[in-house]
Every structure is written in structure tokens, then in C-alpha cells.
């Protein structure tokens, strides 16, 4: 048996939680909100392409970017590797664990069978930390699980080598170098600048604030993509799940981001960021209103244009508030370069 002593803590989001836990294991004291904020994790996108059966939206940056951007802005170096051959991937992972190195891996969430079956869906971008193995089972620190979990080798391997979009391909990472003196102030400023870019400056009509407004405009058209009333109810419930339950920390990552801003105000000794963190918390409360309204409509099965417009109107208010917020944040950053 080999289980590495590892402080397991639950986190709001699998990627920022995994990165924070690994760095803390290696002696770098950093919180999950700080990892998320430095990496400019806050985002919005509304997507519907001809090949998609149903529209979707995202409230965070692309999977993998939390780690890459955090590394680029702090100087932390991660060793990363993808594999074609599952046997080689398994062998190298086992060797690392046996040497005492906890390793983060990308998996299809569906195969993480320590969660109840009804909760598991196919998502290829879940991150967990492997902290030990014994016989045919692995010990897993999963940010969404209250305790260290166990998984059988076969399910774990299936999860690491599930195909499809964003296939994990056995991807793994772990930190190999952490600078002694990280310039946290610069990293935070870069993170804030990246966030204003995400939300205001990407010239595509479905990204950032423009994406929230597009979502608001398009939601009344959702019934035409639905195969049945149950299907539509499920999709509208998913608004609530994506904003509250699916690893966001609540309010579509806005509560997590508010936490980052509060920490950032102390590091940068900028009291205006403390005020803005409270404002972001209020914005998160607004996203929670969107969640609650969506759950109510889905439960009542009233998909009339008027009811869906209620969600659209709430989204427009969020767009206005976030536009004002990120413009002021942008100005604040320009004043303190």
C-alpha cells in the first residue's frame, strides 16, 4: 500500500482546487480564489453552432487555462504529459505515486464511481489528484468529494482515456518548481487585467458582457430546440446546475471571484478593491436570482415566452452590472500601473 500524506480539502472548482491543493502540498500557501483570480478564470460565453443540438453557456475560462495562466503569471512550473498508450500512462503514474509525488490527472467525471450514479455525467475536463494506490485501487483527492475517495483501476483508466471532445488522453500534471519569492502583486494585476479583457475586450458577440446579452436575447428561442417538454425542463434546470452546483462556488463563479478581490485588496493595499469585492458579491447574488428563477420555471413547466423573458431580463441586469464593474476595474488598473 502507498498513500501519500496529503491534506484533502473540498474546493468550489476542480481545476483551481486541484492546483491550490498541489501547491499547498509543496509548501506554497495559496488559496483557491487566489489561483482562480490570478488565472483570470472569470468569463462568460454563449455558444450555439449549427452542429450543436442545444445552446450552451460557460461561466469560466477554458479548462486547462487556470493552470497555464497561473503558471505563466507566478513563475510556478508544472510538468505536464499526455499519452497515447494507457499502459505507459498507468506505469508512469504509479512510479510517481510510489516516489511520493501526488499527481493531478484529467478524467471523464462519469467514471468517478465514488459519486452516486445520478450525479455523474460525461464531462471530460474533471481534475482530481491521485495520492496513492493499493492493489487494484487508487486513492483520490477530489475537490467535490468530502473525503479521500477510492476508485478501481479499470474505472479510473476508462476515465483517463475516454474519447470524445476534450479527451483527457491520460493528461497529468504536478508542480516541479515554485519560485522562492513570487511577485504576487504583479500576478494579481495581470490576473485582473486578464479578467477585464475576458469580459470587455474580446471582439466576438458571444463572449463576455456581449455573451450575457446574447444569452438574454436567445433564451426565449430555446423551446424550438427541445425534443420534448422533459428535455426542455432538463435544459432549464441545467442553468441552475451550471451556475450553482457544478463547481462554481455559487453565483456562476462570482462569489469565488469576490473572495479573490477581497484577498487582492489586502495584498495590493487597495481599499477600493475591497469595495469592489462587495459589489462582486452582490453581482453573484444577482446570478443566484437567475438560478432560482430558472429552477422555478423548469419545475412549473411554464415555458411561455413571457416566463423565459423573465430569465432574459434578469440576465440583462447582470450584463449591465458586470459591464459597469469591469469598466471601473479597467480604469482602476490604468490608474495604478
Amino acid at each position: 500500500m502507498s498513500q501519500i500524506p496529503f491534506r484533502h480539502i473540498m474546493a468550489a472548482h476542480c481545476e483551481s482546487g486541484t492546483v491550490a491543493a498541489l501547491l499547498n502540498h509543496h509548501g506554497m500557501k495559496i488559496s483557491e480564489p487566489m489561483v482562480f483570480g490570478i488565472a483570470s478564470g472569470i468569463f462568460f460565453a454563449y455558444l450555439k453552432t449549427p452542429g450543436m443540438e442545444f445552446p450552451m453557456f460557460a461561466v469560466r475560462s477554458m479548462p486547462g487555462q487556470v493552470r497555464t495562466r497561473f503558471a505563466a503569471r507566478t513563475g510556478v512550473k508544472f510538468r505536464t504529459k499526455k499519452y497515447r498508450n494507457p499502459e505507459k500512462a498507468e506505469k508512469e503514474l504509479n512510479e510517481l505515486i510510489d516516489k511520493g509525488q501526488p499527481v493531478a490527472v484529467q478524467v471523464d467525471f462519469f467514471y468517478m464511481n465514488y459519486f452516486p450514479a445520478w450525479y455523474r455525467i460525461h464531462v471530460n475536463v474533471h481534475f482530481v489528484t491521485v495520492i496513492g494506490r493499493e492493489g487494484d485501487k487508487y486513492f483520490i483527492s477530489d475537490s467535490y468529494h468530502p473525503r479521500i475517495a477510492e476508485i478501481d483501476r479499470e474505472s479510473f483508466l476508462k476515465g483517463r482515456f475516454a474519447g470524445g471532445s476534450m479527451a483527457p488522453k491520460g493528461f497529468m500534471f504536478y508542480p516541479v518548481s515554485i519560485p522562492e519569492n513570487v511577485d504576487l502583486q504583479k500576478a494579481i494585476k495581470d490576473g485582473l487585467t486578464g479578467a477585464t479583457k475576458n469580459m470587455l475586450k474580446i471582439p466576438l458577440p458571444f463572449i463576455g458582457i456581449k455573451g450575457i446579452r446574447r444569452f438574454a436575447d436567445k433564451i426565449t428561442g430555446w423551446p424550438r430546440y427541445a425534443k420534448s417538454e422533459d428535455y426542455l425542463a432538463d435544459k432549464i434546470f441545467r442553468i441552475t446546475i451550471f451556475l450553482e452546483d457544478q463547481g462554481t462556488g455559487g453565483g456562476g463563479f462570482r462569489f469565488l471571484y469576490a473572495s479573490f478581490l477581497q484577498e487582492a485588496s489586502k495584498v495590493l493595499q487597495n481599499p477600493r478593491l475591497e469595495d469592489m469585492s462587495r459589489e462582486m458579491m452582490a453581482i453573484g447574488d444577482g446570478w443566484r436570482e437567475v438560478s432560482l428563477a430558472s429552477a422555478k420555471i423548469a419545475k412549473q413547466r411554464d415555458f411561455s415566452k413571457a416566463r423565459l423573458m423573465e430569465i432574459g431580463d434578469l440576465l440583462r441586469v447582470r450584463a449591465d452590472m458586470e459591464e459597469s464593474f469591469f469598466k471601473r476595474l479597467d480604469k482602476e488598473l490604468s490608474n495604478h500601473k
Binding site: 473540498m10 474546493a11 468550489a12 438560478s291
Partner: peptide, 20 residues
């Protein structure tokens, strides 16, 4: 894990049940 305002005014993680 959700992030929320604690009694002392700081923001931080809270372990609670899933809303859905």
C-alpha cells in the same frame, strides 16, 4: 463548497448541501 460572506465580513468557503 460555496463562497459566502462570514459573520466577520470576510468572504470564504462554506461546505453545504447542493441546492439542486
Amino acid at each position: 463548497i460555496l463562497y459566502a460572506e462570514k459573520d466577520d465580513g470576510t468572504f470564504g468557503p462554506v461546505q453545504t448541501g447542493s441546492y439542486m
